[in-house]
Each structure stands twice: as C-alpha cells, then as structure tokens.
Design a binder for these strands. Structure first.
Lengths: 164, 164
DNA sequence: GTTGACATGTAACAAGTTACATGATTGA
DNA sequence: TCAATCATGTAACTTGTTACATGTCAAC
C-alpha cells in the first residue's frame, strides 16, 4: 500500500488539504501513483489517528490543511530505507505499447499517433516544469528523470510509426 | 481493467495454460501489468464463456491450454484502436525514487544502492532476452524500449549516488 | 519416498473506482 | 443568479492480494 506513504511524502514536501493532495497526485505523481479524493480523505483520517499527520490550519469552505508530524516523517524514512519495495506495476499504457505488434500494420497508425500526441504533451509539460525550477530544487532530479524517459519513449514511438 | 486484454494479448502471441500465463505476466509484462493465478483462472473462465478464448489442448496434470479465438483477436484490436487509454499508473518504485529527496543524505546511500542493484539486474536480463531474439521478432521493439528506459534509469540512479 | 515444480481452484480480505451527496465561494 | 471550482464525505461495487486447499508428475 503505497497510498499512505505517497500521502505522507507529499505532506512532508508541502502541507495541503485533501483536495490539493488529489491535484498533486495527478500532477507530480502522474507517472508513479494515482489516488482519488474518495481514497485520500479516509487515509488522512487514519494517518491523523495514528499521529502521522496533523491539521495545521483551517481555511475557507471547511477546508483543513494537513502536515506530516515528526512521527510521520520518521515513518516515511523507515519505509524508504528498511522496507522491501514491492515491484509490481500497473500501467495500461505500457500494456498497449507492448501489444502494438498484434495490431495489423494498417490499423497501427491511429493508436501510434494518439500515443505520440500524448507523450509529446507530457514532454512539453515536463519542460515547462523544469524551466520554472531553480537548479537547487530538491525535486529537480526527479523531473529530469521523467524528462529523459519521456524523450526515449517519444523517439521510440516515432520509430515505430516510421516502420508502419 | 487491463487484465482481460493482457490475457487476451498474451494468448494471441502464444496459447498457454493459466499457470504459464502467470509466469508470462511476471516475465514479459513485469514493467506493465501484474496478475496472479487467483485472478487469471477466473478471468480465463469468463473469457471462455464470452467466446474470446477456447481450450485448444489438454496436457498432464489436468492442464488446459487456451488460445484466443477470432472474436478475442477482434476484441483486442478494437480495444487497442478504439478505446480511450486509462492513463493512471501504479508503480511503487517510481514513488520511492520520487521521495528519495526526503531521505537525509546520509541515509540515501542504502536505498540508492538497492535500486542500482535491482535496475542493473533488470538491464542484464533484458540484454539476455535481446541477445536471444532474431531481428525480425515482432516483439523486439518492445524489448529495445525497455532496454533504453532501464539504461536511462540506471544512469540517473548512479548520478544520484555520486551526489550524495 | 520426498522434495520441488507444475497445475488449478476458492474464500476472505484489502485496495481502488464510480456514483451519490452536500455545501461554500468566486467570478462572469 | 448561474456556472465553475473548491472542498469534504460516504456507499456500492469492482479489482487485486493473501491464504487456504488439493492434486500431479519428475527427478533425486
């Protein structure tokens, strides 16, 4: 269950409301983990009960801003250093790319062009994020990795298109 | 639900028993989708009921070999070309790499070395697979993509280690 | 004969999605 | 005042995991 450690990590980086966390999952963890608000709110309640997070502010529209506690920060480091990673992945896009060879060549163009459009947009997005980041930002390396991976993917997709 | 189309795809590539499918998920779809036998067997039963797969042979130990039917093949192509891809991903390894910056530099070496070991092994594996593949194999491009991505990841991990 | 891989299945539980529900605030 | 976005929550359902259960076959 990476949900709890993703939430914990996001809150260590920056205190947020549940609503903001849902957005941050979609923006900064897009290519790593997905969580919707219906999962986030109950998880925040559980984490609070366990003393891993606390409410540090209340705003408009009954919103509560949560932050990780010292205990939460320690739990995150423990998880990162001591717990054996679960290597199972779920990525429908990767499944589709793998199965591309099974689509007859004439029908391959459409899905390939769709994937090229998607990946180009992702790449452009990452370039914008990188451009707005100072060199010392602790998360810059993560963006750089995503950037390199997306560039490799886009190249590959274009090669596949040229061959069909 | 990519389970059904992953199963369908694997069976189009090569007829298999449920047991073999479980192994193929772990080998060839490692970085795309995971499924365990307790999910595969009921899914095969459902796919058979719907005429997407059929039993093409029975072997030792009450094993049944399934293959995709024409209907199954058509459904797979329909899914690949017409259905809007679900872009949500779940990848604990990616979450961990993202959160690396939150681990104090002194504690970062251990997880980084573990990830380097893991990624090197994956890369070596992929190189073996590629070496045993003829140039015309329809799935060679997929292996090449995985190879390039793993190379990028390994480079990145080594950079991170050098910086900490 | 016994260990390990092959082979299939179900049940209980946990995690994740979709749909339902409600209300506040902002800006056009 | 109306629509969009902010904001939180729960319920029903689907998907996925872990544990339980059983039996076959080959090699040592």
């Amino acid at each position: 269950m990476s949900l709890r450690h993703s939430v914990l990590g996001l809150l260590v980086i920056q205190p947020s409301t549940g609503y903001e966390l849902a957005q941050r999952f979609d923006r900064t963890l897009r290519n790593a983990w997905h969580a919707s608000h219906s999962q986030i709110y109950p998880e925040l309640a559980k984490l609070q009960e366990e003393g891993m997070v606390e409410v540090v502010g209340e705003g408009a529209r009954r919103s509560r801003t949560y932050a990780a506690t010292e205990r939460g920060r320690q739990e995150l480091v423990r998880w990162m250093t001591e717990e054996e990673p679960v290597r199972t992945q779920r990525n429908e896009t990767a499944v589709r790319w793998f199965l591309l060879a099974l689509v007859p060549p004439q029908a391959r163009r459409a899905p390939l062009e769709r994937e090229i459009a998607y990946t180009s947009a992702e790449l452009a997005d990452l370039e914008d994020i990188e451009a707005g980041m100072s060199a010392e930002q602790p998360f810059r390396p993560t963006v750089e990795l995503a950037l390199r991976m997306n560039a490799v993917m886009l190249d590959w997709l274009k090669e596949q298109l040229n061959r069909s």
